[in-house]
C-alpha cells in the first residue's frame, strides 16, 4: 500500500451556530516528508473502522451521478490518473461546505478534510476523511508540561474511500466504503456530500462473502481441516439465525467474536480488507441456507447436520429424528459417559 497524493483542507467551526471557517491548500502535502506514523495512520483509518459498502447514486438511483462522482469523472481518466488532484479536492471541499451551509446545519462542526489517493491490492483508491484534533499533553523545551492538540488518526468518525479501479470498470456496485456515524443529521449530510448509497442487493453478496471469509480464514489462517471449517460455518449460521430471531442487526465483529473468539480482530480485519464486508451485515435467507446446515438448539440439545443428509443418514418422521450414523467422536463420548455410569453403579 502506498499513498500517491495527499492534501489537507479545513472546513470547520469551533462552536455551534458560528460561521464556517475554510482554509484550502494550493498544493499537495508532500508524501515524502510525511512521517511513517501519519502514512500508517491514514492507511489504517478505513481498515479498522466499521464501514458500509455501496455505490454512487441519488435517491436510490445509481444511474444518476451525484456531484462527487461528477468531479471524479472530471479529473480521473480511465487509468485512474488524476489530472489535477489539488483542484479536485478544492472543488470537493467547497462542495462539502455548500452542503453544510445549504442545509443550514448549524451544529455540524466540520473538520480537517484529508484527501488521499493510494494504491492497495493493485487497485487505486481515493479516500476522504473528516478528522478532528484531540487534546494531548506535551513537554516544552524548558520541560514544562503544556497542553497540545494533535490530529486524531485513531478513530474515523466520517469518511469514505472509493475504489477508483472498480468504479471505472462499471462492473461493480460495491466500490464505495463509507462511515457516516450514527446521528441521523450527520449521516444524512455526509451521505449527501459523497452521494453514496448502500448496495441495494447487498444481502446476497454479503451473506455469500461472509461464508467465504469464514472458510478462507479457517482453512488458510488457522489451518483447520474441512470438518472444522464446516463447523465454523455452522456456528456462524446458528449465530445469525439466533440474531435474526431476536430481531438484532448482524454485526461482523459479533460474528467474529462468536466464530473465532481467540482471533476475532484478525478475522474481522481480513473480512473487511479481502472480502469487502461491512460491519453491519445484510443477510439473505436463501444464501444463508447455502451454509449447508440444518440446525436447531433448545431443551438442552444442539443439533446440526448437512442438508443433503436429510432422508439418507438422518430421517425425520412425525417429530422424531433418527440418525443411522453418528460421528465417531460423539459415539466415543457417549460410550465413555456410559462406561463411567456403569463404573459408578458397580
Amino acid at each position: 500500500m502506498a499513498i500517491k497524493h495527499v492534501i489537507i483542507h479545513v472546513v470547520k467551526r469551533d462552536n455551534d451556530g458560528e460561521g464556517l471557517s475554510k482554509q484550502l491548500r494550493n498544493n499537495e502535502n508532500s508524501t515524502e516528508g510525511m512521517t511513517a506514523q501519519l502514512t500508517d495512520g491514514l492507511l489504517e483509518l478505513f481498515s479498522n473502522a466499521h464501514l458500509n459498502i455501496g455505490e454512487f447514486g441519488v435517491d436510490g438511483d445509481n444511474e444518476v451521478e451525484p456531484a462527487f462522482e461528477q468531479k471524479l469523472n472530471k479529473y480521473y481518466d480511465d487509468e485512474c490518473k488524476c489530472s489535477d488532484f489539488v483542484a479536485l479536492t478544492k472543488e470537493l471541499a467547497n462542495k462539502y461546505e455548500s452542503v453544510i451551509v445549504g442545509d443550514q446545519l448549524h451544529t455540524v462542526k466540520g473538520g480537517y478534510l484529508v484527501f488521499y489517493h493510494y494504491e492497495r491490492n493493485d487497485d487505486d483508491w481515493l479516500a476522504v476523511a473528516i478528522l478532528n484534533k484531540t487534546e494531548g499533553i506535551d513537554v516544552a523545551a524548558d520541560l514544562e508540561v503544556v497542553a497540545s492538540e494533535i490530529l486524531d488518526l485513531k478513530k474515523l468518525h466520517l469518511g469514505a474511500a472509493i475504489n477508483l479501479t472498480q468504479w471505472k470498470s462499471e462492473l461493480s456496485t460495491r466500490y464505495v466504503r463509507f462511515r457516516t456515524g450514527l446521528a441521523a443529521e450527520v449521516r444524512d449530510y455526509f451521505e449527501k456530500f459523497i452521494g453514496c448509497q448502500r448496495d441495494k442487493l447487498a444481502a446476497t453478496v454479503e451473506t455469500k462473502k461472509l461464508k467465504s471469509a469464514i472458510q478462507d480464514y479457517a482453512k488458510n489462517a488457522c489451518g483447520m481441516d474441512d470438518d472444522v471449517v464446516s463447523q465454523k460455518v455452522a456456528q456462524a449460521h446458528d449465530y445469525i439465525k439466533e440474531q435474526q430471531k431476536l430481531g438484532n442487526q448482524v454485526q461482523l465483529s459479533h460474528v467474529s467474536n462468536h466464530v473465532f473468539p481467540d482471533r476475532a480482530d484478525e478475522f474481522t480485519r481480513q473480512a473487511r480488507e479481502i472480502h469487502d464486508l461491512p460491519e453491519e451485515l445484510a443477510i439473505d435467507g436463501k444464501v444463508l441456507k447455502s451454509y449447508k446446515k440444518l440446525s436447531g438448539r433448545g431443551k438442552g440439545i444442539a443439533i446440526s447436520f448437512d442438508r443433503d443428509m436429510l432422508n439418507t443418514t438422518v430421517k425425520y418422521d412425525d417429530g422424531e429424528l433418527t440418525f443411522s450414523e453418528i460421528p465417531d467422536s460423539l459415539r466415543a463420548a457417549i460410550e465413555e459417559e456410559l462406561k463411567d455410569d456403569l463404573g459408578k453403579d458397580n
Binding site: 493493485d122 472498480q166 470498470s169 462499471e170 461493480s172 466500490y175
Partner: peptide, 14 residues
C-alpha cells in the same frame, strides 16, 4: 484479475 462482485439483476452490458 479479481475485480468485484455482481448480482444477476444488476448486470450491465460491460
Amino acid at each position: 484479475k479479481p475485480l468485484s462482485s455482481a448480482n444477476l439483476s444488476q448486470l450491465k452490458q460491460a
